[in-house]
Design a protein around this nucleic acid. Structure first.
Length: 729
DNA sequence: TTGAATGGCGAA
DNA sequence: TCGCCATTCAAA
């Protein structure tokens, strides 16, 4: 009798063996199995003849969910790689990449992919058999005539009331419901494609020439250089092969609808699905299923979608590859960008990583020749200019509520011209600190090593790390002084200041607080586009993806903390962020201006930024990293631990360090430290960094180390995790 | 991780 | 001795 080796969602680094009991399960199928006193859903990863355990110690599977799509061997191979590389239990990985519905103990996919097509009867007849006034029916008829068959989703795009119309047509016998296996290819239609500039054309040509076989490309294009157009041309080429599918990764959910809309306009006939965590379970499953079955040809999604089974994958695009959102920050701490590269390699297909400010890891790979570099140096709209970037010395006594006179003048100027401005400040709330004027007490968070932020309008103090809230104190709890001052500037305070300085201006604040309501961001963007806003105040939310044609001034307030941060990646991130924000200015024909307030106007970062010279800055940073032996010149892993009490955390980390010191000498083990947020959400934290010059050495070390850590008694007393290639240290 | 079994301790 | 808790252990 064959033995099924099953992956289960338990934090144990092992598979569990079950007897097949005549079910004839296959690798990749879901099964229901008894587990302790419970039942669990798992996935068959191996089928063997003999278990390590005695056969009578094995229980039979309860159910095999056959007739469903399974996890393909390609995906299982990728997940195996991840389990190895990130040192995370395979069972948990397998179960976490399945859509929620497939983690439930029931057959999920009895529903077929249904589509509609014109009946034989209808094909003999003509549109004129429909009532004259049934406009929607007529539209659907035409669409079906053109496409052959369409899914409910396709029809939903044709019109909102498609459902009643299709029912009527079905009742009249014009339309029939069929199960879809393949998309019926549509006749190519004339879609307007903008002309490419020289750089774009060269990039498209280079990749198109090598669409078979693995190759990683870095598409380095300044903001506004038309990266998306390059992606679309590449999709076009890749999709020219019959049945071919492509995967496009985007960093954030916010950016999916935008890109989706552009793709839809360009590829109206290509079935496209989006995958991200904000969709309902049903929708997620449906879309996953369409990708898995080969029906969807364009799959666009956030980081988790890198694990979607896509049988005929021919090209992967990772947009904004430098973006930190690609890194999962809990559970298996994978980098979707890195996994995407592995996936492309395993599948033997090209991958394009796009960014205006590539991560240093990627840039280094391109310099070392591992990735081929494609540069877009011109803005796509030829006459549009790169913005002028100017630093303003913030060490002036004439600061008015944190604003320099030069910035205020520039705002005046735009207002007079009827142009829009954007002030960028990376701090939500009214002010970041509540300070006692007498004893210098500041309101702390009880659960974190952080300060509470003043939200004046709601009269509350909030912790931006754990979500804790309390009322604003009437007097200092330390000395009784009633004179407590909100100190420093946040978005809300800036908004208030601007209202005072420019009473006639329409100011709009865009941050996590003001956009909490669903659809709020979209509404606000519409306000901006409709020119019903003069000055935008916002956090980094505004940096990504939005085009503001009438925006000609970007003011950046208070970025200095990142210049001298203990985190060696802070400068890299700041540069990327400033480049991105700067890219918001002057995207159309109007030249833009970026004013940066800083106490360090001559800092090299700003010098490079003024010249829009990413390459030079990257070279400087890489030089520093090389000298210090930091990534990408070494490979790191970070062991984190947390618990309610510090003592077990300290002991666990200390013991882990001791074990590490005793292992392989090719790995450097730092001292245990407490992170900047030593306390977070009521948990005491500590961490330990290890690094090695070679990935292999680090991996070999981690394998041993993890095995030993898992068997430590203390390991059960703390919450701990390993972060391979950590982004924040 | 979950859930059950174990063991220590105060109350009765 | 009961009941409650914290801790420990197994899961195929």
């Amino acid at each position: 009798m064959s033995i099924l080796r099953v992956a289960l969602d338990v934090p144990l680094d092992t598979l569990f063996d079950y007897l097949d009991a005549g079910h004839q399960a296959e690798v990749g199928m879901r099964v229901l199995v008894p587990f302790g006193r419970r039942q669990m859903v798992g996935v068959v990863l191996e089928i063997v003849e003999q278990s390590q355990l005695d056969n009578d110690a094995l229980k039979p599977v309860l159910e095999v969910y056959g007739g469903e799509p399974t996890l393909s061997s390609e995906i299982l191979r990728l997940l195996n790689f991840c389990a190895d590389y990130y040192h995370y239990p395979l069972g948990q990985i397998v179960m976490s990449v399945l859509p929620g519905r497939l983690r439930e103990a029931r057959l999920a996919l009895l529903e077929k992919i249904l589509g509609y097509r014109l009946s034989e009867l209808a094909r003999q007849a003509s549109l004129e058999v429909l009532p004259k006034r049934a406009l929607i029916q007529r539209r659907l008829w035409l669409a079906l005539e053109k496409q052959g068959s369409l899914t409910a989703e396709n029809l939903g795009e044709t019109s909102d009331n498609w459902h009643t119309a299709i029912k009527a047509m079905q009742a009249a016998g014009w339309v029939e419901c069929v199960e879809l296996k393949h998309v019926i290819p549509s006749a190519p239609s004339a879609i307007a494609r903008p002309a490419l500039n020289e750089d774009q054309a060269a990039a498209v040509e280079a990749v198109t020439r090598q669409l078979t076989g693995f190759k990683a490309w870095l598409l380095h294009g300044i903001t506004g250089s038309g990266k998306t157009e390059v992606y679309m041309r590449l999709l076009e080429s890749a999709l020219a092969a019959p049945e071919a599918q492509v995967l496009v990764l985007v960093p954030e959910i916010n950016l999916t609808p935008q890109l989706q809309a552009r793709f839809k306009a360009r590829f109206p006939h290509e079935p496209m699905v989006a995958l991200h965590s904000q969709m309902s379970d049903g929708e997620r499953l449906r879309n996953w299923r369409q990708a898995e079955s080969g029906l969807a040809r364009i799959v666009i999604g956030t980081r988790l979608s890198v694990f979607t089974p896509i049988p005929n994958l021919k090209l992967v695009v990772v947009d904004e590859e430098h973006d930190g959102s690609y890194k999962q920050q809990d559970g298996m701490r994978y980098s979707a960008r890195d996994v995407a590269v592995v996936r492309a390699k395993q599948a033997g297909i090209p991958i394009v990583l796009g960014s205006a400010t590539p991560s240093l890891e990627t840039w280094h790979n391109s310099q070392a020749g591992r990735y081929a570099l494609l540069t877009l140096g011109q803005r796509a709209v030829a006459q549009s200019q790169l913005p002028d970037i100017i630093t303003l010395d913030a060490r002036t006594p004439q600061l008015k509520d944190g604003l320099t006179p030069a910035l205020i003048n520039a705002l005046h100027d735009r207002l007079a011209k009827g142009e829009q401005s954007l002030l960028f400040i990376n701090r939500r709330g009214y002010s970041p600190v509540l300070l006692c004027s007498a004893c210098a007490w500041v309101a702390p968070c009880e659960r974190c090593s952080s300060r509470l932020v003043v939200h004046l309008r709601q009269r509350r103090l909030k912790c931006h790390h754990c979500g804790h809230e309390e009322r604003i104190h009437v007097q200092c709890p330390n000395c009784g002084n009633p004179d407590l001052h909100p100190t420093g500037h946040g978005t809300q305070r800036l908004e208030a200041t601007l209202a005072e300085l420019f009473p006639e201006a329409r100011v709009l604040r865009v941050d996590r607080d003001s956009t909490r309501r669903k659809g709020a961001l979209e509404d606000m963007m519409a306000e901006v586009h409709g020119r019903r806003v003069d000055i935008l105040v916002g956090t980094q939310m505004l940096a990504k993806g939005h085009d503001f044609p009438n925006l000609t001034l970007v003011g950046i307030i208070d970025t200095d903390s990142a210049l001298f941060s203990p985190d060696f990646r802070a400068a890299e991130r700041l540069f990327a962020q400033l480049m991105q924000v700067a890219g918001r200015a002057g995207r159309a024909e109007k030249p833009g201006e970026v004013l940066i307030q800083t106490a360090f106007p001559d800092h090299v970062l700003f010098e490079a930024l003024k010249r829009h010279d990413y390459a030079a800055f990257a070279t400087t940073l890489l030089q520093e990293r090389k000298t210090a032996m930091f990534p990408p010149y070494c490979f790191q892993a970070l062991l984190r631990a947390e618990a309610q009490k510090f003592e077990p955390v300290r002991d666990f980390i200390a013991e882990a360090a001791n074990i590490a010191y005793g292992l392989d000498g090719a790995v450097m083990v730092y001292d245990p430290v407490r992170p900047t947020m030593a306390r977070l959400n009521g948990m005491e934290r500590a961490q330990l960094l290890v690094q090695a010059e070679h990935r292999q050495a680090l991996q070999a070390f981690l394998k041993q180390w993890m095995g030993m850590l898992r068997s430590l008694p203390l390991a059960a007393k703390v919450r701990w995790s390993l972060d391979v290639d950590p982004l924040e240290i």
